[in-house]
Design a protein around this nucleic acid. Sequence first.
DNA 1: GTGAATGCAAACTATTTGCAAAGGT
DNA 2: ACCTTTGCAAATAGTTTGCATTCAC
Lengths: 155, 155
Amino acid sequence: MSDQSILQQLQNKGFRLTRPRQAVVDVLLSAEGWLTPEQILEKASTGCSSLGLATVYRTLALLSDESFIRRIHFEDGCHGYARADLDHGHHLICRSCHQVVEFEGFNKIEILIQSIEDETGYFIEEHLLELVGLCSRCSENSIDIDRQYDKRVQS
Amino acid sequence: MSDQSILQQLQNKGFRLTRPRQAVVDVLLSAEGWLTPEQILEKASTGCSSLGLATVYRTLALLSDESFIRRIHFEDGCHGYARADLDHGHHLICRSCHQVVEFEGFNKIEILIQSIEDETGYFIEEHLLELVGLCSRCSENSIDIDRQYDKRVQS
DNA sequence: GTGAATGCAAACTATTTGCAAAGGT
DNA sequence: ACCTTTGCAAATAGTTTGCATTCAC
């Protein structure tokens, strides 16, 4: 999904096409992986120097509501945002370089969920599956070269 | 795992057996589902009237480090805690009554992860799988009778 | 021109920390 | 007695909100 397409779709829904929104969308689409709101602010400031953090949050909420991006949850409660290219919500996240892959295997998960419903009698409404590890490049190279990219160290 | 057993194990590791810890462990073990730190404070105050929220958080961190309880993540960023009876981390959570089931299906997930590793070249270090829905009782009864139990409404 | 969106600062929520006092061993 | 743990209050981090101004339509 292109930059233009997202902005266009927003406009069609009656949202205004503003510079802050363009800048945020642009940053998220050109990123290879996930970014924190702070990182998005920093990068998007290039395209919109007056940009404030509140607007970043408001734009993220809008994009997320409209399913153009997805929020990523981490064990320590921290959050990131990445674009949602595929229409399901499973992330494979590289701890080292922040690359995010939305992986295939959807069907397998649907089957798994079906069998859990059968076993337990639950009616399952949502599922959240996130996998964190190292992508092949980072696990080949001596792993933690890019460790400064880790969110805890970045701050 | 009993109340005594957890407290005993903590003591064996050199942690002191205090009234606040007893109260928190007691509340978590007698709960059927997950609780927020605030709820834990409220309930545990019965057994330890001087209890403060900071101590609840410190005790939760301890119990969680020692794997006696597990933190539960929600889409909106809110957190709950529930006991970890089984030694894997998959939760099936009822939106209505807060019941938490740690479900079987471990092997299937391991197999799924293995196949994702093969497909993508990732080395997967952690996985987070949470399912939210309605338990059989809540989906039979007219569903949202207990909606006031929802965390957003509780506050 | 009109209402939506922005930017700032202040508010708010969840959580953590410093420190003196209390309590377990 | 010693050192861990506690409780309070203050600090912090992440996020949201009020409001006057700006901007897209």
